[in-house]
């Protein structure tokens, strides 16, 4: 008879239930992250940074030292920590707005500099915390609060291909993947590889996670899964884009 919830060891139980909405994908991404931290045994070394947007609600999520900063600025804050404390495993956690819009210059430049940090980005195709506005990742035709007639790519462009971009601008040693909350085990493995890449000091590591936002999508559980598993992959291909060459044994 099990008595305790099966949370990752690195989760901080005192702050659970967490602050995310019912069915929010952040919980799953952070579960995968927590499991990855546990399996690598790095809880004592992790510094976790989070953005504004819903991701900020993770500031007290883990039993790891954490800092919440402004919208888009998690990458530089975490970069600052890593540069000052190279012995720490530094994780920048953000949403699609923080990574691909207001903080895109930081993502691009941290990747280009091959900062030895791990960026984990939840892509839910909209701005969640501010109430469902268009994000860089909103799909063509997708209705949001600021594209009430559907996103028109002629006017607002096409969804940002984050991992593809990061993959294109990083050098050997970088790790880039796109996972999905529909496959938590795979997502955990991607995140684990990304963190391992930092542990080994190979280079920048980046994982985008396709994630759900039932609140702003106004979807029930069935439609939430359908959007994540059927609609989003049409634009966002799940898989590993870049991994360091296997070290010779």
């Amino acid at each position: 008879m099990s008595k305790a919830p099966n949370m990752p060891k690195s989760w901080r139980e005192e702050t659970k239930p967490h602050k995310f909405c019912p069915g929010c994908g952040h919980g799953l991404v952070l579960k995968a992250l927590g499991q990855a931290i546990d399996e690598l045994g790095i809880q004592d070394r992790v510094v976790f940074g989070c953005d504004i947007g819903c991701s900020l609600l993770s500031f007290d999520f883990f039993n790891v030292d954490s800092v919440q900063t402004h919208h888009g600025r998690t990458t530089p804050v975490v970069t600052g920590v890593k540069r000052a404390r190279p012995d720490r495993i530094c994780i920048a956690y953000m949403g699609d707005g923080g990574g691909y819009a207001i903080g895109s210059q930081h993502l691009v430049n941290a990747a280009a500099r091959n900062e030895k940090i791990t960026v984990i980005l939840a892509n839910n195709c909209n701005y969640g915390m501010t109430g469902g506005q268009m994000a860089p990742t909103s799909l063509p035709g997708m209705k949001t609060e600021t594209t009430p007639y559907g996103r028109d790519p002629e006017v607002t462009g096409y969804p940002t291909q984050g991992p593809e971009m990061v993959s294109a601008i990083t050098r050997e040693g970088a790790y880039v993947a796109r996972g999905t909350v529909a496959n938590v085990r795979q997502l955990k493995n991607y995140i684990k590889k990304a963190l391992q890449n930092q542990v080994e000091g190979n280079g920048f590591s980046f994982v985008e996670a396709l994630s759900g936002c039932p609140t702003n999508w106004s979807t029930n559980a069935k439609d939430t899964w359908a959007f994540i598993e059927e609609t989003m992959p049409k634009y966002f291909k799940v898989g590993e884009l870049k991994a360091p060459a296997k070290k010779e044994e």
Partner: peptide
């Protein structure tokens, strides 16, 4: 970024 990385450095 310069300002925020400085924040990160000081927090460290």
């Amino acid at each position: 970024s310069a300002g925020f990385t400085t924040c990160g450095g000081v927090l460290s």
